[in-house]
């Protein structure tokens, strides 16, 4: 009886579905849907285009012609200014402020900060996740639930005391002070990797243990390579997060020697003159700041999209 209805519905539905499909291009609903989607994509992408257009413009000429869709008085000047390649005269001539912004230096700091803290975060989460998923020890579930509880506490409550602690440890204006709080412990990463490892078949690892391999050799030789997918995903997401981090570095650094690019860019923006900011230079600097993320996106776009979708399904 049930099968009969099932096939009956199947027969009923299939032709309907195919006629729908054939009629689709003409349906007004679909046209509206595409118009809406196009509008959303345009709104999303336009600022990126405007960034490019302005960054290749002569700041003086651009102020005279603010609506031109193309770079006004095409020049590489803004990039030369923010990368410190232009002389003061050159930069003043194109509407720069004349002050030098060591963007490349900030960029280097960002690379160190984001990659070190991501590497620490993922590695320490990885070995902890192994202990939580593969080893038998008393208190395992209890410690794990304690760790998970940390997900509930928003950063706002710990930021000020953590600043005080880093100050007391004498780690203000050091990479260690910037990295330690996020680098050592990440409840989300531990949870994510533990779930993955629990879902992984243990047969190969057990076989290796039987053959006399030590736990550590199994961890580094087998478990970690088998978990490379989620490791890459977490590394990318972690790197994006750290690269864009602003508030914590703002608290613990005051010295340009360790400050990341987000801070450098904010200083550049906040210190621009009210009357005639160097918008072209600012846009060039934002491109330098965004470029590593855009490259990451071009290489790992599909993985990023899928992992974001997945993060909602847990």
């Amino acid at each position: 009886m049930t099968t009969a209805t099932a096939t009956a519905t199947g027969k009923l539905v299939l032709p309907a579905a195919t006629t729908r499909k054939r009629r689709r291009p003409a349906s007004p609903g679909r046209v509206i849907a595409w118009v809406y989607l196009t509008a959303i994509i345009l709104i999303t992408l336009f600022p990126f285009y405007w960034m490019l257009r302005s960054a290749f413009s002569n700041n003086y000429a651009m102020i005279a012609d603010p609506t031109s869709p193309w770079p006004v008085g095409f020049t590489l000047g803004p990039f030369e200014r923010v990368l410190g390649l232009a002389t003061t005269q050159q930069s003043l001539a194109e509407g720069g402020s004349g002050a030098s912004v060591p963007i490349l230096h900030y960029l280097g700091n960002s690379v160190v900060y984001a990659s070190l803290s991501t590497a620490c975060m993922v590695f320490f989460s990885l070995i902890a996740a192994y202990a939580f998923s593969r080893l038998q020890w008393r208190g395992r579930e209890f410690v794990f639930s304690l760790f998970l509880a940390a997900l509930m506490v928003p950063a706002i409550l710990t930021l000020l005391p953590n600043f005080v602690l880093v100050k007391e440890l004498g780690l203000l204006n050091t990479f260690a002070g910037m990295i330690l709080p996020t680098g050592l412990f990440s409840a989300f990463n531990i949870f994510f990797l533990r779930q993955f490892m629990l879902g992984l078949s243990t047969e190969i690892e057990e076989a290796a243990l039987l053959d006399g391999a030590g736990r550590l050799r199994v961890l580094f030789g087998l478990t970690i390579p088998m978990a490379s997918g989620p490791i890459i995903t977490l590394s990318i997401l972690g790197f994006i997060g750290q690269w864009n981090d602003y508030f914590w570095p703002l608290l613990v650094t005051s010295d340009a020697s360790v400050q990341p690019l987000t801070l450098g860019l904010a200083v550049f923006k906040q210190s621009s003159p009210q009357s005639q900011p160097d918008w072209a230079g600012l846009m060039a600097a934002t491109i330098v700041a965004a470029l590593p993320m855009l490259i990451l996106f071009m290489v790992f776009g599909k993985r990023i999209v899928n992992s974001i979708g997945f993060s909602g399904l847990k």
Partner: peptide, 12 residues
């Protein structure tokens, strides 16, 4: 394309 803004910092 639509997640591009998520990849850049709030500062940018």
């Amino acid at each position: 394309l639509i997640i591009l803004p998520f990849l850049i910092s709030g500062v940018v």
